[in-house]
């Protein structure tokens, strides 16, 4: 996975709340057996709306997306994160995210930034005309107008993102602990091993 320390550039000012993963990538795109190429189906229903932010040349190629509460709710489909990746989105800013989506985003090197609604409203305003900068080292979001918002992020996730670590590899290195647990499980809850 690529290392992620800063994300700078324009942002799609989507703003709306409860953006579910069916909106991010509709079910008829889930039949792929690959992780790439889903950008073409991303936000299909939003793109059908005249004047939507995704087809506005002003925001073409933006690496940041700004949304409302509960972004990524609904289905667990990781295709939502793959679709954002395919669009070139490196970070999403919102007042809250669904638990499953934020995990999927993290595992695909996408940073989810949680900020209070007032800060998100200000960034939505700035995004219409100017770029935004996210610094994962200092956990801050800044604008060319001296705005500065600090965010909190799980330290493990931050470390993995900044170093581009492979989580499965990290866990497999703990094989002896998993084996010890399984040995105890085989006696204490023996009915679980069919």
């Amino acid at each position: 996975m690529d290392q992620l320390r800063t994300v700078e550039g324009r942002a799609f000012p989507l703003g709306r709340k409860n953006v579910d993963t069916d909106v991010i990538i509709p079910a008829h795109y889930l039949k792929t057996i690959s992780r790439i190429g889903l950008g073409k189906g991303a936000f299909e229903t939003v793109r059908a709306e005249p004047g939507n932010v995704f087809d506005d040349p002003e925001y073409a190629g933006s690496p940041i997306l700004i949304a409302g509460d509960n972004f990524g709710c609904g289905s667990s489909r990781e295709h939502a994160a793959w679709a954002l990746n395919d669009m070139g989105i490196k970070a999403v800013i919102a007042p809250s995210f669904s638990d499953i989506f934020s995990g999927n985003a993290f595992k695909n090197g996408i940073l989810t930034v949680v900020l209070p609604q007032e800060a998100v409203d200000r960034l939505l305003e700035v995004a219409k005309t100017d770029p935004i900068a996210i610094d994962l080292e200092h956990c801050s979001v800044t604008t060319p107008f001296q705005d500065r918002f600090e965010f909190e992020i799980d330290s493990f996730r931050r470390n993995c993102l900044m170093k581009g670590l492979d989580e499965i590899g990290l866990t497999l290195a703990m094989d002896s602990k998993i084996s010890a647990y399984e040995t105890r499980l085989a006696t204490e809850r023996s009915w679980l091993s069919a």
């Binding site: 667990s76 489909r77 499953i100 999927n104 595992k107 493990f156 989580e167 499965i168 866990t171 497999l172």
Partner: peptide, 22 residues
């Protein structure tokens, strides 16, 4: 609980998941 595909792969390979208590 539901998981994404990267977590599916993680569980297949390790039978575990890294989680924070809810």
């Amino acid at each position: 609980f539901g998981i994404g595909t990267s977590e599916v792969e993680h569980v297949l390979a390790t039978q575990t998941l890294l989680l924070k208590q809810s």
